[in-house]
Design a protein around this nucleic acid. Structure first.
Lengths: 128, 128
DNA sequence: CAGAATCCTATACGATACTG
DNA sequence: CAGTATCGTATAGGATTCTG
């Protein structure tokens, strides 16, 4: 059944159509992006920026435990991916703001239900 | 506005209610579960098991590039978390089947849209 | 304030070999 | 077939210092 018939494909169906053989084969672009998002601090940085603009220092405090090195690295990756924008105001002392791009917002919208589920279930999952 | 009023909270709102201060503070149970899911092979193993039961060898082939060590480790973590069940048939040679628990199915249902989005956007994201 | 640069190390991970 | 055990290493990541 063609997609054009306005019958929406389920995500599961679409995935098996997008990957007829093995899903996310090694080295494919999807796997690279997935690695960026699921990198140690990726998800936490992204949701910290949900619906708001944060400065470097604020972001650092919002993502508890992140080092400066990893914050810089994670932000650069996301900037290159087109998920985050960096805006530097030419003042002294420096003032730099980070926020999500439209693409970043799309992604975060998909991440949020996942995080809600995690927050709801985490405690009982680790109980044993 | 109380949740009980049948007005559904948005995921964003619920997250800020669940985490009044910093989201996913260091060491909290949610962060641990998030680390399991976003571990190097976590997502790939979970979606490989979406809607089907796989044997060890099949799983290894379905998750291209995974080593035996990491497959074993990832599966044990998910078993302990209650996301995956392991069923060993007492035959020789051994026959072991892995599948998702109801909890695992919930999680994968949230993962799928994320993976569809990734597959759709990855190529253009890495273009530059 | 917002980073870059350096140094250092833990551990996550892979390769290989072995076994019930 | 479905793992475990051992070993070795690369690199992800942290701590610290420095600077425009």
């Amino acid at each position: 059944m063609p997609v054009s018939e306005s019958v929406r494909e389920s995500p599961a169906t679409e995935l098996s159509r997008l990957f007829p053989g093995v899903a996310f084969p090694a080295g494919c672009p999807s796997r690279v992006v997935l690695d960026h998002v699921t990198s140690k601090w990726g998800v936490l940085v992204l949701i910290a920026l949900a619906d708001r603009t944060l400065r470097w220092g604020e972001l650092r405090r919002a993502v508890e435990g992140i080092s400066e090195k990893m914050l810089a690295q994670t932000l650069k990756t996301f900037e290159a991916d087109g998920l985050v924008t960096r805006e530097a105001l030419p003042v002294i002392p420096p003032h730099v703001e980070y926020s999500l791009t439209p693409l970043g917002n799309e992604l975060v919208a998909l991440l949020q239900p996942l995080l809600v589920w995690t927050a709801r279930n985490a405690e009982s999952m680790l109980a044993r």
